[in-house]
Design a binder for these strands. Structure first.
Lengths: 204, 204
DNA sequence: AATATATTTAATCAAATGATTAAAATACTT
DNA sequence: AAGTATTTTAATCATTTGATTAAATATATT
C-alpha cells in the first residue's frame, strides 16, 4: 500500500514505464493508447502500471505535464530576458525552438490535440499567458509596433516554427519531403525565421 | 442486403448519421469517438450506423476525406491561378483561408492529428503536393526568390493562418483570449498576413 | 536466518464498445 | 389489398480494455 518512497534512485521499473508511456502516448494520443501497449513497450507486467501510477489517466497526466512544459516552457526564458534586443530574441527563439522541435517532432501535435479534448489537463495554465503578457518580449513589441497586438506577432512566430512539424505527417505520407530533406529545411528555417520576423516588424 | 441504391435523394437517415459523425469525430477524434455517441447525436438507433456505413472505420473515412479536402483543397484554386500576381494571391489566400477556418475552427487539429496515426487515410495524397509544386504560386515564388525553397514560404503562410486555430484550445482554457477577442484577432490577421508575406518576400 | 516489506506475476473482473441478428415496422410495387 | 423490399428497433455477441486480486518472488531489516 505504501508506495516506493524509499527507492528514490530507482529509475528502474517506474521510469521504464514512464519512458514507455511517453513514447506510446506521444505517438498515438491518449484514447488510442492501451495500457497494454505501454506495458509491452516497457516490457513489464500490465499490473505494474496500476501499481505504480494507479491509472492510465494519472500516468497520462504526468506525461502531459512534462510535455506541455517542454512545448511552451522552452521559450519563456528567452522572451523574458530584458538584456537582449528584440532582434536577438528572434534569433534565439528560432534556433532554440526549431532545434528542440527537431528532436521532439511529435511534441506539438500531441500537446495541442490532447488539449483540445481535455483542457483540464492544462498545467500551469494561468501562469503561461500572464507570464508572456508581462514579458520583455511583449514590451519590446509594443514599443516598436504599438499599432499591432503583440499576440499577432507571437502567433506568427510560433506558427512559423511549430507548423512545419505539425505538417510532417502530410509530407511523409505524400513522399513529398523526405525526412532528410525536412531536416535540411528546418535548419535553413533557423536563419529564415528571424530574418522574416525583422521584416514583419518593419512592414507598414 | 442490397443497400439503399434507389433512395438517392434520401438525405434523411444516412445524412443525419453523417452529419452527427462530422460533429463528433471533429470534436473528439477517431479513437475517443464511440459509435454510440454518433448514434445518440443523430438520434438514430446504433444498428443503423452499421446498416448504412458498415463500420465506424468506413464512416470515419468518409468524413476524413471531406475534411482533408476542405483543409487543403480550399487554397488550390487560388494558388493555381495564373492570372493573379503573387501579392494578390497573398491577399486572396489570407481572406479565404482565415474566413474558412473561422467557420471550421477545429478542422486543422482534426485532420492533422488523425493523419498522424493513420497516414493511409490520406486522400488524394499524391495529387496535392504535386499540384502545389506545379502551381503558378510556386513559379512566382521561384522567380522572386530563387534562393529560397518555395516550401519555406508556403509553410509560413499556412502556419501563420492555421496555427492560431490550433492554439485556440490553449487560449480558451487559459481565459487569455475570449472567443470574441479571438474572432477580432483573426479578422485583423486577414490584413496582416499579406502585408507580412510581402515583407518576407523582400527580406534579404 | 527469520521476518517484514516491497515488487512482480498470472489470472480474472466488470464495463465499454463495435458489430450482428432476427424480428418488427414502414415504404414501395403490382 | 397483397406481396415484396427496405428501413428501423431491441436484444445480444464477442472482444477489448482498464483495473483488481491473491499468490509468488525478491529485497530489505532485525
Amino acid at each position: 500500500m505504501a508506495k516506493a518512497k524509499i527507492t528514490v534512485a530507482d529509475t528502474s521499473t517506474e521510469e521504464k514505464i514512464k519512458e514507455a508511456a511517453r513514447k506510446v502516448f506521444l505517438r498515438k494520443g491518449y484514447s488510442a493508447t492501451r495500457t497494454r501497449d505501454i506495458a509491452e513497450e516497457s516490457g513489464i507486467n500490465l499490473a505494474l502500471l496500476n501499481y505504480y501510477f494507479r491509472s492510465k489517466e494519472k500516468l497520462f497526466h504526468i506525461v502531459m505535464e512534462e510535455k506541455f512544459q517542454k512545448l511552451f516552457g522552452t521559450i519563456v526564458p528567452i522572451l523574458m530576458d530584458d538584456t537582449t534586443t528584440l532582434e536577438k530574441k528572434f534569433e534565439l527563439f528560432a534556433i532554440t525552438y526549431i532545434r528542440m522541435l527537431s528532436e521532439n517532432p511529435d511534441l506539438p501535435l500531441f500537446v495541442l490535440s490532447e488539449l483540445r479534448n481535455n483542457a483540464e489537463h492544462m498545467v500551469s495554465k494561468n501562469d503561461l499567458m500572464k507570464l508572456l503578457q508581462s514579458s520583455n518580449f511583449v514590451k519590446q513589441l509594443k514599443e516598436k509596433r504599438p499599432d499591432i497586438n503583440p499576440l499577432q506577432f507571437l502567433m506568427s512566430l510560433l506558427g512559423m516554427s511549430i507548423f512545419p512539424f505539425i505538417m510532417q505527417p502530410v509530407f511523409s505520407a505524400t513522399n513529398a519531403v523526405s525526412p532528410q530533406a525536412f531536416k535540411a529545411l528546418m535548419e535553413e528555417r533557423i536563419a529564415l525565421i528571424p530574418k522574416w520576423a525583422k521584416a514583419m516588424i518593419k512592414a507598414k
